[in-house]
Every structure is written in C-alpha cells, then in structure tokens.
C-alpha cells in the first residue's frame, strides 16, 4: 500500500496563486511573439517577410504589415533582421476578442474593446468543450497541462466538459481539416445557447503552417462565429488561462492593435 495521500500532503501546495499577486505564471524564459519596432526598420529590406513561413509578415508598399494571428513563433524573423526591428520578446498573452487586434497598427492601444461577454452568469463558472480540428498535439498538450496541479484550472471555476450539451464555450484547436469540418459543426450545433467559440493556437486562428493545404482549411473563421482568438504555437497554459479570464471580464484585454500593454 503506497501512501499517496500522505506523500502528496507532505509535498505541500503545488498550485501557483497566479494570476493573483506574487504568483509565478511558470513561463520563465518562454519566447513569445516577436516585437515589431518600425522605427528601426531599414528601407528596402524585406528579410523578415521573405523567411516568414506563414506570411505573418508581408511587405505592403514601403511598410510591413504584421499579423500576429498568423505568427507561429518560429523566431526566424528575429534572427534575420539586420536592424533590430523584429526582436524576441516574452509577450505570449495575445488573447483578443476581435481579429483586428492581432494586426499591428501604429495607433494600437487606443480604440475601445468591442462587445464584452454579455452574460455575467458565466463569470465564475464556465464549461468548455474542446474540439481538436487537426492540431499538431502541441495545443492539446498545453490544454491538458491546465489541469495539472501547477495551474489547476478548476480553482478559477473553469471546467472541461465531455458533452457539448453542457458546454458554454467551444474551444477549437487546429486548422480545421476536411475530415474534422463536419464533426466540428455538429459539436457546435449540439451546444445550448448562449454559446461562444474560442480559437486556440495559430492554426485555429488563421490555419498556421498547413493553411489552405489540400487537406485543411484556414482556421475556424468562416466555419463558426469566433468570439475569442488566442494565437501562439502553441499558446502556453498561462496564456490560455489569461485569455479565458479576459473572456469572462475578469482581467482586461492586454493586446490592442498588435501591441501589448503591461
């Protein structure tokens, strides 16, 4: 007979108090979305746009257009940039309500956040049905981590539920492959109203690395109405938690116009 409970108790509390003050989010060292600094950008240089595997960076005229909804965090742009206009950062909390907020804009951080979650009833109790619509298993690995003792998502009143019938939020990962297109829509149709959809991971937001391939689509948009976007490859558990809390109006949205505020 192994004394699981005794040893478990002796180990002390493993759960982080984060997002409360002085809590560790557990993401020490994690590289997030590259930070774009247009002032450092050299004229006529398109190094970053030419290496970007998902066209998250494109040249439009003399300027770059940067779409964090397409970024797979591969860091290639930060390595080829000769001028420091693309630099590595620890900005991984990129959950937004509006897809436009993932597009870099120099007026970022000013406009009002649109349509906050209407029903207060879900603020302290949210049930999620997850659907894997063709991910690489990276997002699933991080979603599974949410219920490990370190993050312990339950403590925030957020639960995964087996049946879409009990779910308030449909959390979709993957670019929506042809074969998962129909099951995904069936899961959504089975949900009671009000219902919301969250696209987790760059694949679900914009299709990711395989976007538009013969076998898959370009994310959840156009398949289901998306209420919450969280790019990342994969988004880490703290980023997923923060996005969920933002959706529940428990923390403010930090990213506007592709720029993050602390």
């Amino acid at each position: 007979m192994a004394l699981w409970t005794l040893f478990g108790l002796m180990g002390g509390k493993a759960t982080t108090p984060w997002p409360k003050e002085r809590g560790e989010n557990g993401q020490y060292g994690v590289l997030g979305m590259p930070r774009y600094n247009p002032e450092a950008c050299q004229e006529g240089c398109d190094e970053c746009a030419s290496v970007c595997p998902t066209r998250a960076i494109e040249t439009s005229g003399d300027n770059l257009s940067v779409d964090y909804g397409r970024c797979v965090v591969c860091q290639l742009c930060t390595e080829v940039c000769p001028a420091g206009a693309m630099t590595s950062s620890d900005n991984w909390a990129f959950g937004v309500r509006s897809r436009e907020d993932l597009l870099w804009s120099d007026t970022g951080g000013h406009h009002e956040v649109l349509h906050p979650t209407k029903s207060r009833a879900f603020k302290r109790s949210l049930h999620i049905r997850h659907v894997d619509a063709g991910s690489c298993n990276g997002c699933e690995s991080e979603l599974q981590a949410l219920n490990n003792p370190f993050y312990n998502l339950h403590r925030l009143g957020i639960f995964f539920t087996p049946s879409p019938r009990f779910a308030d939020l449909l959390l979709v990962t993957g670019p929506v492959t042809r074969a998962m297109h129909e099951p995904l829509k069936a899961a959504y149709d089975a949900m009671p109203e009000p219902r919301w959809v969250m696209a987790v991971g760059t694949c679900a937001v914009s299709g990711g690395i395989a976007a538009g391939n013969y076998a898959c689509g370009t994310g959840v948009e156009g398949v289901l109405p998306v209420d919450l976007y969280l790019p990342g490859c994969p988004p880490n558990p703290a980023a997923i938690m923060e996005a969920l809390l933002m959706f529940l109006n428990r923390t403010p949205q930090r990213v506007r116009g592709g720029q993050i505020s602390d």
Partner: peptide, 8 residues
C-alpha cells in the same frame, strides 16, 4: 481525421 498534408 487530422490529416493536414504535412508532407506536401
């Protein structure tokens, strides 16, 4: 169900 055509 998750075939994404990665080889392609």
């Amino acid at each position: 169900f998750k075939h994404r055509g990665m080889e392609k």
